[in-house]
């Protein structure tokens, strides 16, 4: 009996030793890893550099050239004769280049009012989580300039000064979960020329947007840009609302959406959206981006 008890004791004793020896090695690693672990940056808040019309907090990495085509057909309510808008189109062609991982320079040309645009976009804060320092949101600043080159035969005196407008926008986003990201984007616009004296040159707008991933490589995107009243008075403007669907494959991001804005540059869609969802002024469109690595990392 004594022997049995001893044998049993011995077995449990050895068993414990064996188990602890086996896993202690891994535990030792895990423990030292925990103490060393730093806060990780949250990546892929959005798939594209644009939610739909609004820029997102994302920028291309250093040395990456992003080529983007934004395309909007005509209004759906133009009817069957215009094939529900598909007969007409406006587009913007743009290039973004990552000067660093944080700073991007972009240029673009829209067919809408023959507008050229350029901007600088810089990441100021990046959302971080984990044991180290935590930052709740990613913040990217956008400073842009747009130049409308459309010829006005009746107003030949409108020189470059009158044709220019400026955008300063703060993009504040948080990836709430692996699927849901939300962005708040207050913007200040300055138009050098406004249609009438009752219109303000300085316009403030508040953008909101988000994406909800539905599979690993696709998401539903929505954005709404609120334009407070008493800023644009000489003609009827509406708040810009857009909804769409993103698909990502390798270096491409393909976005299809519907929107009531025809312009694809901030001064055009934030303060000059004349389309109304209620009246069916809905533009079907898509954005396609392709990234090219011009310089090699490492």
């Amino acid at each position: 009996m004594k022997y049995y008890a001893l044998f049993f004791f011995l077995c449990t004793c050895f068993g414990k030793i064996a188990i602890s020896q086996d896993s202690s090695l891994l535990h030792m690693l895990e423990d030292s890893m925990m103490t060393d672990k730093q806060g990780g940056r949250v990546t892929a808040t959005f798939k594209g550099t644009h939610i739909i019309n609004t820029q997102s907090v994302e920028t291309p990495a250093k040395g990456v050239l992003l080529f983007m085509i934004m395309h909007r057909f005509g209004k759906i309510n133009e009817g069957a004769y215009e094939f529900f808008g598909l007969d007409n189109a406006t587009m913007r062609m743009g290039f973004d280049y990552g000067l660093t991982d944080e700073l991007t320079a972009g240029i673009g040309r829209s067919t809408f009012q023959k507008t050229y645009d350029g901007y600088l976009k810089g990441k100021l804060l990046r959302q971080s989580e984990g044991a180290g320092k935590r930052i709740p949101v990613s913040v990217t600043a956008l400073a842009g300039i747009a130049y409308t080159s459309l010829r006005y035969s009746d107003k030949p005196y409108l020189n470059a000064k009158y044709r220019t407008s400026y955008t300063v926008q703060l993009l504040v986003a948080r990836k709430l979960s692996r699927n849901l990201s939300l962005q708040l984007s207050p913007a200040w616009l300055h138009y050098n020329l406004v249609p009438a004296a009752v219109d303000k040159n300085d316009v403030f707008a508040l953008g909101m947007g988000g994406r909800m991933k539905i599979t690993k490589r696709s998401s539903i995107n929505v954005e709404y840009n609120y334009l407070p009243g008493n800023q644009v008075n000489s003609f009827k403007v509406y708040n810009s609302f857009s909804a769409g669907f993103d698909i990502e494959t390798g270096g491409h991001v393909f976005q299809v959406h519907v929107t009531n804005s025809q312009g694809m540059v901030e001064p055009l869609f934030l303060g000059r959206t004349t389309g109304s969802w209620g009246k069916g002024d809905i533009y079907f469109g898509f954005n396609i981006s392709r990234s090219f690595n011009l310089s090699r990392k490492h």
Binding site: Q21, L25, M28, K37, A61, V64, D101, K297, H298
Partner: peptide, 18 residues
């Protein structure tokens, strides 16, 4: 005669950021 490895997947660095 045992060994163990542990690593963070985020620490894998690629040539292309994307």
């Amino acid at each position: 005669k045992t060994m163990a490895f542990s690593m963070l997947m985020k620490s894998f660095l690629f040539r292309k950021e994307l």
